Amino acid sequence: MTRMRAKPGRRTPVGRDSRDSLRRFVEMLAEKHPPLSLDAADLTIKDPEQVRRRFGRVFGYLTRVELEVERNVLELRVLMPESTETDRIFYEQVWWPQELQHGVLLDAAQQGFGMMPVPIDVARVSARIRVTGALSHLPGMLGVIRLLYYLTGAATERSAVIAYSRLLDGLRAMGEHAIAETVIAPIRRQEPGHFAYYRGSAEALVKEEGLSDWQLQLARILRRRSFAPVGVTSRRQRADFGDVARALHLDRDLPAVARQISLVEHELLWAQQLGLKVPRYIMAALDEAIALSTARSAAQSVRN
């Protein structure tokens, strides 16, 4: 079967010599971006009520997503029991400790303006994940699962960069410079490195290692059926994501946001479909989240 190869002159964010360069990139992330320290954060908040009213749900959602990294690592171990050594080093020694500290910082900040700690799920691995992991032993399936892992990671990290950038701008505009500069800004600085790893890994897998046509087609089908905004595993969480999107005004330029979120998968899975700037399933998922949030807010207003 035909395989997709790299075009002459194209370079991934971490170089053409994929295995060595990805490994060096992970080592660089570990060295230059150690987990953030709570002791270095200034949690001073000038107007707790205003911050809670405007961004309380944003902090709550982001805190949950970051702290649930523990469950995400369990899922990765089940999904890819034969993952590459570099992937394991990345998600166990770099991504996991960094994301966990992001959650610790966000939780400390939100408690400073009166938010209660959010319930998190760190132990439950779904049946769907377990079945998919069992299928990874079949010929060719591990490549598909790896690609889906990289695409999900890339979309998640782009979403995070957008969210933290909007939150940072909002806090600065409110004059809440302490938590803006010592909590949100340091978190935002670490997210692009994660995105670069996922993008470089996905490009190396598709363009250098090579995937067969059936593997790419299966990845398209599974991605279309399984895509969800970051942190969403239920209808309630989908509405919660919509709350975040509305609070950060993502709904005002949603097509541009969707293009950023889908950047890597558009390039690797859908670029040959002319005119398709954003995969339809991504726009549909974002639209649904905002619609659910709007409807829930309207229902709450009626009850009040």
Rank of each mutant, 00 (worst) to 15 (best):
R5T: 05
A6D: 05
K7C: 03
K7N: 06
P8H: 11
G9F: 09
R11M: 13
P13S: 03
L22C: 06
R23Y: 13
R23V: 14
F25K: 07
V26Y: 00
A30V: 13
A30G: 14
E31G: 10
E31A: 14
P35V: 06
L36K: 01
L38W: 02
A41M: 14
D42I: 14
I45G: 05
P48Q: 08
Q50R: 07
V51T: 12
V51Q: 09
V51P: 07
R53T: 13
R54C: 15
G56D: 02
R57Y: 00
R57I: 01
F59G: 00
R64N: 08
V65W: 02
V65Q: 00
E66Q: 12
N72C: 07
V73Y: 13
L74W: 06
E75P: 01
L76I: 14
V78M: 09
L79C: 00
E82C: 12
T84G: 05
T86A: 11
T86Q: 09
D87M: 15
I89T: 08
I89A: 07
F90L: 11
Q93E: 06
Q93C: 06
Q98M: 04
Q98E: 04
E99D: 04
E99A: 05
E99Q: 02
L100R: 04
H102R: 11
D107E: 13
A108D: 14
Q110V: 10
G112H: 02
G112V: 03
P117A: 08
P119S: 03
P119M: 03
I120A: 04
V125A: 03
S126A: 10
S126R: 11
R128E: 03
T132N: 12
H137D: 13
H137T: 14
L138R: 08
I145E: 02
R146D: 01
Y150G: 07
Y150H: 11
Y150R: 07
A154V: 05
E157P: 11
R158T: 07
A160V: 15
V161I: 14
V161K: 08
I162D: 02
R166Q: 13
L168S: 03
D169Y: 04
M174P: 01
I179K: 00
A180N: 12
A185E: 04
A185N: 00
A185K: 01
A185I: 01
A185S: 06
I187G: 01
R188N: 05
Q190R: 03
P192Y: 04
F195E: 06
Y197V: 14
Y197M: 12
Y198F: 08
R199Q: 03
G200R: 03
E203A: 12
D213L: 03
W214L: 15
Q217E: 10
R223L: 08
R223E: 03
R225P: 01
R235Y: 14
R238H: 04
D240S: 15
D240L: 15
F241S: 12
F241A: 13
R259D: 12
Q260H: 12
I261K: 01
L263W: 09
E265G: 02
E265M: 02
H266P: 00
E267D: 10
L268I: 05
L269M: 04
L269H: 05
W270A: 05
V278E: 02
P279D: 11
P279K: 09
R280Y: 11
R280W: 10
I282Q: 09
M283L: 15
A284R: 15
D287G: 06
A289W: 01
I290R: 05
S293N: 02
T294A: 03
A295L: 09
A295F: 11
R296I: 04
S297F: 06
Q300C: 10
Q300P: 08
Q300H: 10
